[in-house]
Nucleic acid binder design. Structure first.
Lengths: 195, 195
DNA sequence: ATTTGTCTTGGGCGTTCGACCAAATAGTAG
DNA sequence: CTACTATTTGGTCGAACGCCCAAGACAAAT
């Protein structure tokens, strides 16, 4: 078989996916065009339709791949925190890194919207978010939050995305200042790990 | 002056705004076209550019008008609740009415995204959300939540939008089940209701 | 009756889009 | 070498886009 050719094709496919990820954040889901993504990937426009049946297919594959990586990484890091107070502090600090206007934030938001119009994307993204929630709930349960672990996890997951959205409107909004209400919600003493 | 003409013109302008509001939710901010909005409003395509300098101007005017009405109405209703527990319950019940896939939910989400690319929209929407937060904070302070009223208001406002987003992915997610964590956050007895 | 100003119409300009295709290129196998 | 497959190229297609404009329609003012 043409092994080197196949290898080069895989690399091109990867470049297309990466180009799509960055472009979705910059110009919006529906703003991404064949020519645009091809130019950024450094390939001819026709190549896009060789590797993907349609532009939609490319966008879904790119977005889901990115979201999977981000959610699994965040979930793992959060679950490894020794205490709930620690985890909350870490999460809020992590959220401060996303301004709400950076490509990563915008990509996430764009995916939520596109999911409403692309059933396949909705199913995949829904499964990812559900997995994240379960992971958070499990972590809370491990630390004695059994009673409302599930509901608290829902609140935390939704709050993450809500805060990213609101930071886009008001960059002065600092997530780190919200530790108080969150600790109260989770029944953690106000002065847990750090101040 | 041509009073009847002017009146008819105002009515046409209103129809264009309403058509734009419904279309943003259906096809997305950037998916709305001149011809589309004109057809839905029952007027010729050229009329759009008589009443508005550009499609963007129309969308901003339509979106901001809708958001202003919704936020002021919700803020007023929430602030009129006799107790924090009451308000939380009402808010969560109200949230249940938005599936995350209905035009109103989608319009709100689309506006957050579009705000990142249209500075004018961002300023207006930011002011509206800030006003809503202040109103919620004032209401919390009135009911003895002075210590963390501001932060709690930020959490509540962000949570609203986050929940709408997440409901779009998982319609089974029922906001009403989240009263427990929220009451804990606000220092309200879990079940009794009034403080 | 004529003028004035507001509103409405149909059409056209230039651009960009997704999709598709035949030809060209590169690498493997016989 | 030839035969074959995978990949890339440059180009074309019809459709839709935002925006603009000249002309018509119409109620009020003169």
């Amino acid at each position: 078989m043409a092994e080197v050719s196949a290898e080069r094709g895989r690399a091109t496919r990867e470049r297309l996916l990466r180009a799509a990820v960055s472009l979705i954040g910059e110009v919006g889901w529906s703003g991404v065009s064949t020519r645009m993504v091809a130019q950024r990937a450094g390939v001819n426009a026709g190549v896009v339709h060789y590797h993907f049946a349609s532009v939609s297919d490319l966008l879904v594959a790119a977005g889901v791949g990115f979201a999977r990586e981000l959610l699994e990484q965040t979930g793992a890091e959060l679950a490894s925190r020794p205490s709930v107070a620690d985890g909350i502090d870490w999460l809020l600090r992590e959220l401060s890194r996303y301004s709400g206007t950076d490509p990563a934030s915008l990509l996430l938001a764009e995916m939520f919207l596109a999911a409403g119009r692309e059933p396949g994307l909705r199913a995949e993204l829904g499964a990812l978010v559900d997995g994240f929630r379960s992971r958070v709930a499990g972590w809370l349960r491990e630390h004695g939050q059994g009673a409302r672990a599930e509901q608290s996890a829902v609140v935390i997951a939704a709050l993450i995305d809500g805060l990213v959205l609101h930071r886009a409107l008001d960059p002065a909004l600092d997530p780190a200042t919200l530790a108080g209400p969150l600790r109260a919600m989770l029944g953690v003493p106000p002065e847990g790990g750090q101040r």
